[in-house]
Design a binder for these strands. Structure first.
Length: 649
DNA sequence: ATACATACC
DNA sequence: TACTGGTATGTAT
């Protein structure tokens, strides 16, 4: 192992909780690192981290070997850098990335500040100025006071305790609050309600982070000069009826409208909208602040949302100069998707900043897998298309069900008896099955995850025969039980378990498997009632077997390890496509004549007339808002609108 | 298709 | 004493 690799085995290379986080800038990291390393000591967890770190070091060593071999080979051919050739190869891609920028910054990432913690502070304001965190064994989030001591999410609780104790000279101690997810979920919904007014198709990535495209909002608010209330109703209406209506066309119309506005003016107005939106979130939630980033893609918006945390925002214009000057000096770790490991690898090649990443593109192309190299090149130029696309026509409900897997896992003190462990997977299967029933999900693949006391993670997964899906705990249990005993059998060394988890993937929906011919379904059901027992509910996707053909029990297909599988019930179903094609709306819905967003009647005239019409229209369609205690807020909004209007005078 | 690693909040 | 839980995705075989 060479010296540069060894030297980088700092706390942050070993544990993610040691990395920088908003609110931790300008803190002396060396002391914090020293305490983390000392306290972590030789715990099983840290031993495991070092083991993984060693693997990363091997990877790095391999890459360095590959590099020096290449350099040696080139020297044999009379020197000259091989990098030039790769650079030339990459040139078209670089050009393409720089050319294919979006022309406007309408993507917003809203990120609640220290969300769980600040939810708690609403009822415990006394904790604002003392170091506090949510979570005990594992810290979920900490307040800004605790962050000054290096206490952050993903950190073990007792390490947080030591940090505060030592760095405050024994004067303070870290307060731990138990988590209260009901509260956070409720507060998150309050936030949703506000943000949905700006983009009904927004996507939440977690309780505290939301991705939005405010182009439609801006085009109505800024482009057409409508009031917030009108835009809100128009967007909501369109989202509600969105299934019947074409999407691409209205999207194009929004963009066309925005293109008529001078870019600087639009950007300023957009920033004002985001500001207003954030203040509204704070007001509605009773004081929860958030930060936001506004940019021409979600990666930039995400990074920007972190820039002026807390209670701040950052806007990046869509032009190359703005994008590149924003990202060039960022440490590579700021790029979403570059984590602890990738950072360490890059750093070991002296690639520290995003600009280094670009300058060293040939080296990266040579050392990494093509997909990774492309990913890194794109990010180094501030380009991204991998984060959620909002304009795919999916409603919020629909997009939230696009999930790829569902899982339950539980950590416990190692050393449980085998029978306790069996009880535990029974519980977990039951819970998972219930969650799947709630979400109407069926799974084709099931995975068992086991973490040993050593923190080694093992897993086994199994896919059903083609077209077979399961949901019930009764069906899962024999499969996971078999996988568990397999794991124990195959594993050399002590098999002391500290975590059990079950994951279901390759999902499908019950309704997608539903029988088209009810008479066959009922025929089968009546047959089952007389011939089969149990509540097992294996579904078969596709045209399936003939009604009379009885399938073999699930789990019997390979090796017959599972002997406890209950007899499955079969369902036939049709394979017909669920998605009917939407009728395309006429492309003539354009700018010369403006359609009222509420009633769709074309209106000619200026903004004032339009607003008046929309006002009347809203009243008529009984979507007006109740005035009483909202009148003050509405006044504030009016004031803000006046400020916003000044952009266009 | 399976096992395991990385990343994010 | 003591280091999560849920989800997605990449990589290697």
């Amino acid at each position: 192992m060479d010296a540069s690799v060894k030297a980088s085995s700092t706390a942050s290379a070993l544990v993610v909780a040691a990395a920088d986080k908003a609110g931790m800038e300008g803190i002396d990291r060396t002391q914090i690192d020293a305490i983390i390393l000392r306290e972590s000591g030789d715990s099983s967890f840290m031993k495991q981290q070092r083991k993984r770190d060693a693997v990363v070091n091997d990877r790095i060593a391999g890459m360095k070997r590959k590099l020096s071999e290449r350099n040696d080979a080139m020297l044999d051919h009379g020197g000259g850098s091989w990098k030039i050739g790769i650079e030339r190869e990459l040139e078209p891609e670089v050009e393409r990335l720089l050319r294919s920028r979006r022309s406007m910054s309408t993507n917003v990432v809203v990120d609640m500040d220290a969300f769980y913690m600040n939810c708690e502070l609403l009822t415990r304001p006394d904790l604002a100025d003392v170091p506090a965190c949510v979570g005990r064994g594992m810290i979920l989030t900490s307040n800004y006071c605790a962050r000054r001591y290096g206490v952050r999410s993903a950190m073990a609780g007792w390490i947080g305790d030591r940090l505060v104790e030592e760095l405050s000279g024994g004067k303070r101690r870290l307060v731990h609050l138990p988590s209260n997810f009901d509260l956070y979920t409720q507060k998150s919904h309050e936030v949703r309600n506000v943000l949905a007014e700006y983009d009904p198709k927004m996507r939440f990535h977690s309780l505290d982070e939301c991705y939005m495209d405010i182009a439609p909002y801006l085009s109505l608010r800024v482009g057409k000069g409508l009031k917030h209330e009108h835009v809100r109703e128009a967007l909501r209406k369109e989202a509600d009826g969105g299934i019947q209506r074409g999407r691409g066309d209205s999207k194009a119309a929004y963009i066309d409208l925005l293109k008529c506005i001078p870019p600087d003016t639009l950007l300023d107005a957009s920033a004002a909208v985001v500001e207003e939106m954030r203040k509204e979130v704070e007001k509605v939630t009773g004081g929860l602040t958030c930060s936001a980033g506004l940019a021409s893609n979600f990666m930039l918006a995400k990074i920007a949302s972190d820039k002026n945390k807390p209670d701040g925002q950052c806007v990046i214009g869509p032009e190359n100069e703005n994008i590149l000057s924003f990202i060039r000096d960022l440490p590579v770790r700021k790029i979403p998707g570059i984590g602890r490991v990738t950072e360490k690898i890059l750093n070991s090649f002296q690639i520290m900043t995003v600009n280094d990443l670009f300058q060293q593109r040939s080296l990266i192309k040579y050392l990494f897998k093509p997909a990774t190299a492309t990913f890194l090149l794109q990010r180094s130029l501030g380009w991204s298309d991998s984060l959620p696309k909002l304009d795919d026509g999916a409603s919020i409900e629909k997009s939230s069900t696009g999930q790829k897997g569902i899982s339950k896992e539980r950590t416990f003190r190692p050393g449980r008896s085998w029978s306790e462990i069996h009880l535990m997977i029974e519980d977990i299967s039951q819970e998972l099955s219930e969650a799947m029933k709630r979400k109407d999900l069926l799974a084709h693949t099931i995975t068992l995850k086991v973490k040993l006391a050593s923190f080694d993670v093992l897993c086994r997964s199994k896919s059903m025969a083609k077209g077979i899906y399961l949901q019930s705990a009764k069906d899962m249990l024999p499969i996971v039980a078999a996988m568990l005993s397999d794991l124990r059998k195959d594993h050399k060394g002590t098999f002391s378990v500290r975590l059990l988890g079950i994951r279901c993937s390759n999902l499908s929906h019950q309704n997608q498997l539903a029988c088209r011919q009810p008479q066959i379904d009922t025929f089968l059901k009546s047959k089952e009632e007389t011939t089969l027992s149990g509540t097992s509910n294996i579904s078969i996707k596709g045209t399936g077997g003939a009604p009379g053909s009885v399938s073999k029990p699930i789990g019997e297909d390979k090796g017959g390890r599972v002997d406890g599988a209950s007899s499955p019930r079969r369902k036939t179903c049709s394979n017909r496509s669920q998605n009917r094609h939407m009728s395309l709306t006429n492309g003539a819905e354009n700018n010369m004549r403006i359609a009222c967003p509420i009633c769709s009647i074309p209106i000619s005239g200026d903004n004032e007339e339009l607003n008046q019409h929309v006002d009347a229209c809203l009243k008529a369609s009984s979507v007006q808002e109740v005035g009483s205690e909202e009148s003050k807020a509405s006044d504030i909004r009016k004031e803000k609108r006046r400020a916003l209007a000044s952009f266009f005078s």
